[in-house]
Write a protein that binds this DNA or RNA. Structure first.
Lengths: 128, 128
DNA sequence: CAAACATATGAACGATTGTTCATATGTAAT
DNA sequence: ATTACATATGAACAATCGTTCATATGTTTG
């Protein structure tokens, strides 16, 4: 890409795509420091991606009430068993739900209470 | 973003896909009652979808530090101005960021503090 | 054993997403 | 008006996603 042509003093070098930074270089430096590692940011995005589908959100809301089997969730949400099972797998992979087997039936439940806080904050945000 | 309404092509018979519910009918009823409206659930999913991309998450983290112009964000994240601008539009549409113009420059900043809580809870979750 | 049931999973499909590229809009200075 | 700069946006593309369909796995009962 292109090169910088700094007219501002010290600290910023390399990268610039704009001829001069608009904010104080100290703030840029601070922003770079408090930024979590790339891997954390990726995992964080993956986590929120899981919340980014209304079917999965519905499943989580249903599980607020009590543990429930795949079949009952499908019935409640008017969806196929297969679709629910696929989504439960996603929720399971993100450690948002856990399960226990009882005979033929598998009961799913919420894995921890971050789920409630996160959904609650989301509801707060869209409510304003 | 997400497919609008659509829902259940539905067969001619009634919903139950299992011969009998596995959990107490009273819990099913309770789950149905506390479930937010379809529209709320849709909006909620749309909101979390916005958090579901690491570029947008990075932008939000950068804005924790201070307001910043498009150009500086692009520089900080080693991405093109166009890519950042597109993503800022998404963040703006979800009311997660706001902006002010100053001459040629547009400064973006966080719109409210739900963002911090939501990202914080997400970090907590993946930290376990 | 077989049959019935509950759940899981792989392939395939259309739909949606994030980036790039080219270009448009808006603003300031000459 | 012309040039330069900061940002926005539309089209296009590959990549990813959620559902369906068909089928597999696992469990209980006869």
């Amino acid at each position: 890409m292109e090169k910088k042509l700094s007219q501002q003093p010290q600290t910023t070098e390399e990268l610039p795509s704009c001829p001069q930074v608009q904010v104080h270089p100290s703030l840029i430096e601070a922003a770079e420091e408090q930024m979590p590692d790339e891997e954390i940011l990726y995992d964080l995005a993956e986590l929120f991606k899981v919340f980014g589908d209304s079917t999965r959100i519905k499943i989580l809301f249903v599980l607020f009430q009590s543990e429930m089997c795949v079949c009952d969730i499908a019935t409640l949400l008017h969806m196929t068993q297969s679709a629910i099972s696929h989504q439960l797998r996603v929720l399971k992979q993100s450690q948002l739900v856990k399960y226990r087997r009882e005979g033929k039936t598998v009961f799913y439940s919420l894995a921890d209470n971050h789920v409630k806080t996160i959904l609650g904050q989301g509801l707060d945000h869209i409510a304003e």
